[in-house]
Each structure stands twice: as structure tokens, then as C-alpha cells.
Amino acid sequence: MMKKIFLLTFFVLIAWMSGFAQSNMDLEMADLMRSSGKIYVVISVLLIILGGIAGYLFYLDKKLKHLEKKIQSKLNNL
């Protein structure tokens, strides 16, 4: 009997504590990304796209510069 009561209180305590621990972990708070109807998520998505396209353009620019240098050196060797 004592053992059962002990186990019961133990499990209730564990359940209560884990519930307590969860209440301030992984909870969605009103942080920046979730404020104003999560509009900053949309803005970040747009910034990712803009950054991606900008990065791609710089990459293409580098390739083109390489090509220009090659052509220039070939012209100089004529």
C-alpha cells in the first residue's frame, strides 16, 4: 500500500515537474518573428530571395570578369 502511494506521488510529481519544465521551453512567445501577424516572416522570405539573387548575380559577374580577362590576354598575344 505504502509503495503504491509512494509511486503515485512520485509519478504525479514527475508529471507536474515536466509540465513545469515545458512551460518555459519551446513555447512560442510574442517575439519579433511572431509579432504583427508574423509579417516579419514574409519580409525575411523576401530578403532571402533578394540575397540569393544578388549572390547569384555577383557569381555571374565574377565568371564574366574571368572571361573578359581571358579574352583580353588573347588579344594582347595577337
Partner: peptide, 21 residues
Amino acid sequence: FLLDVPRLPILHETIRNLYFH
């Protein structure tokens, strides 16, 4: 960013990502 969108739970304004994502 400015036109009205349907008000949906969880999604909120992020439904505007439809135009981008």
C-alpha cells in the same frame, strides 16, 4: 504587402509568402 488577404489561423500574414515562396 498591402492588399487584403484571408484571415487564417497559424498562417496569419505569412500567407503572403504565396507570392514569394
